[in-house]
Amino acid sequence: MNRTINVSVNGKRHTHEVEPRLLLIHYLREVIGLTGTHMGCETSLCGACTVEVDGKAVKSCTMFAVQADGTEVLTVEGLAAPDGKLHPIQEAFWNEHALQCGFCTPGMIMVSKQILERNPDPTDAEIREGLDGNLCRCTGYQHIVNAVRTAAKAGV
């Protein structure tokens, strides 16, 4: 039996009828059409699908769309300002070469935002601990750590 959900995604309100089994990531990607959030493992172990739901980072591959009913969801597409000005974490990822193939990057950026919101001045060890739920196969993480540190210095 389909259910009606109301979700705000990147500040825009949406109402859809969805199957209860529809995953949040598929709702975002296929119903809303925002494909920046990536499915990397389907088991919440890689973090490529990380989005914010009511301000908390969650892995959208293991949350149903119906669980997001009435929430505010933020995806990587919602980070830059309406005029296109990048979020400081996006800018830091760019400047520090914190991405190569880019597939894990939307999740990395979303979790980095959360790391800095919880701790605006983290040590390198704290940054690495905060990134623990997100896998990157390209960078060896060193430039991602640099990017989070740089963003912290910029006062995100």
């Binding site: 990607r29 494909t35 920046g36 959030t37 597409e77 990822f93 991405l99 880019g102 939307p106």
Partner: peptide, 19 residues
Amino acid sequence: LRRREDPRLITGTATYVED
């Protein structure tokens, strides 16, 4: 030089096969 590929990748607007 920082990469010219990155703007699409850091904004979630790149097109992978699944997209």
